[in-house]
Amino acid sequence: MKKRVKKTVKFLSAIFVFFVLFIAILNFFSNPQKPSLFGYRGYTVISGSMEPTLSLGDYIITKERSFMELDKGDIISFENGQTIVTHRIEEQLPDGRFVTRGDANRIDDQLAVDEEAYIGKMLFRIPFLGKIMIWLQDPLIFGTVMALIATRLLIIIFFGVGQRKRRKET
């Protein structure tokens, strides 16, 4: 029973480390001016304009798709000045640009989205992960999480190897 608990803890801690690293890497590549991670980018929802589809604090994953493949009803991320906005396509204008609107908004966005402003189409959301991402931006919390990961790695390096050697000797 004790071995099963240890294996479960090791497995969960490995998944946690992998998950934190994956999100950190994805966030690094989420700047629209930088290359994406195989076409994927991640963003935290920071407004309620897409309620109930997207909630404040959700984390969304977008994928670069051809601008020409987009359709009415698709949820896309785009640049609006210095802000990244994620809204639903309401219609396509004759010049090819898209009119968008947040699900919770009564009126369409003022600026139509062109191919230059378009970032990607939303693939899926991870509820509440964005709240965790914001929470991790606190230097004290971030430092604590990194210390826990480093401690776990040190335990694996110094104690995990010794246990394997002892098992081989017996």
Rank of each mutant, 00 (worst) to 15 (best):
L93F: 12
I126H: 11
N105K: 14
M133N: 12
T86I: 05
E91Y: 08
D114C: 01
R125C: 10
E115H: 02
A112N: 14
E79H: 08
I132T: 11
I84H: 03
T100E: 08
D138A: 07
I119Y: 02
I119V: 11
M133G: 05
Q82R: 15
H87N: 09
Q92P: 05
A104P: 08
D95I: 06
E115S: 07
K121Q: 11
V99W: 02
R106T: 06
H87K: 10
I119E: 02
G96L: 08
I134W: 00
Q82E: 13
V85C: 10
I75K: 00
E90L: 08
I134C: 01
F98P: 07
I89N: 12
F124E: 04
G102R: 07
D108Y: 09
D103G: 09
E90C: 03
G102P: 06
A104F: 04
D103I: 07
L129K: 07
S77Y: 02
D114K: 07
Q110C: 00
R88P: 03
E115R: 01
F128D: 05
D114W: 06
T100I: 09
E91S: 15
T83P: 01
D103R: 09
G120N: 04
N80D: 13
F128E: 05
D108M: 04
I132G: 08
D108W: 03
G120F: 00
P139T: 03
G96H: 08
A104E: 08
I107S: 14
R97V: 07
A112W: 00
E79F: 02
G120A: 05
D108V: 10
D108K: 15
I134F: 10
P139F: 04
F124H: 09
G102A: 09
N80Q: 14
Q92N: 10
G81I: 11
T83W: 14
D95P: 03
E115G: 06
L123W: 02
N105D: 11
R125E: 09
T100V: 10
I119N: 03
I76A: 00
E115L: 02
Q110L: 13
G96K: 09
P139E: 03
R106I: 02
Q92Y: 08
N105T: 14
L123K: 09
Q110D: 10
R88D: 05
M122E: 06
K131P: 01
I134V: 15
R106W: 01
I119H: 01
A117W: 01
E115K: 05
D103V: 04
A117S: 15
H87Y: 04
G96I: 07
D95G: 00
P94T: 06
F78G: 00
R106P: 07
V113M: 13
I89F: 09
